[in-house]
């Protein structure tokens, strides 16, 4: 069983590597959105520092939504998803591996870009560490919960906007706790509590989301 799972992981990573330019697009979107904010708000470093965490998180959520749709789309279109469903490997496990591969290939690059953006928005070093930690804990949560909605909208032709409509309200708690952690860090306060809550949400979604995603895929495959 684990052999087939590693095979799926390797296949997804290889596919992602061959579509590098497509993976670049959400990243460029991320940078562009964030560089729009200083232009819109004004270059005052203090204001930028104040809105920075929120801006980075909102931009991260939006750009992860952009890349989310390709999570199952190609597999659905070429029929390989159906083959996987028919195989003896449990679908929730397969789904978990696929979400992990997607997170590695399209979210981790965003994390790697985050130091640059912290510089853009004049974040202090404490704030940056808090931001990185919240992103590390929070973005897998984005991918897991997002994959449920991706599964549901899979058979629709124009699911893109609908996906955002479905997911943005669901992501609000994450946004609140993550930005609060960074804000606490900017005041030199401990932010373990916020991280713990995000971690708890991640664990809950890790336990439940794979089954919901698997069910959603079955609904879409009909």
């Amino acid at each position: 069983m684990s052999a087939s799972l590693t095979a799926i992981l390797r296949r997804d990573l290889a596919l992602a590597y061959r579509q590098r330019s497509e993976l670049m697009q959400p990243m460029m979107f991320f940078i562009l959105v964030i560089s729009l904010f200083p232009l819109g708000i004004g270059p005052n470093p203090e204001i930028l520092q104040k809105v920075g965490p929120g801006v980075i998180w909102v931009a991260a959520i939006l750009s992860s939504l952009l890349g989310m749709e390709r999570l199952f789309k190609d597999d659905y279109n070429d029929g390989s998803l159906e083959q996987v469903m028919l195989s003896s490997t449990p679908l929730p496990m397969v789904v978990l591996v696929k979400v992990f591969a997607h997170w590695l290939t399209s979210i981790v690059p965003l994390l790697l870009l985050s130091p640059l953006l912290a510089l853009f928005l004049n974040l202090t070093q404490e704030m940056y560490w808090a931001l990185l930690l919240t992103l590390l804990l929070g973005t897998p949560l984005l991918s897991l919960v997002g994959a449920i909605a991706v599964g549901l909208t899979l058979s629709l032709n124009r699911g893109g906007v609908l996906l955002a409509l479905l997911l943005l309200p669901v992501f609000i708690p994450l946004l609140i706790f993550a930005t609060a952690a960074v804000e606490a860090a900017s005041l030199q306060l401990p932010y373990n509590a916020q991280l713990a809550i995000i971690g708890a949400m991640l664990l809950i979604s890790l336990a439940m989301a794979p089954f919901a995603i698997a069910y959603a895929l079955r609904v879409s495959q009909n």
Partner: peptide
């Protein structure tokens, strides 16, 4: 029929 199932999953997620 499919729509009902999909919306149901979303309602439970909510």
């Amino acid at each position: 029929h499919q729509a009902g199932k999909a919306a149901g999953v979303m309602a439970i997620v909510g």
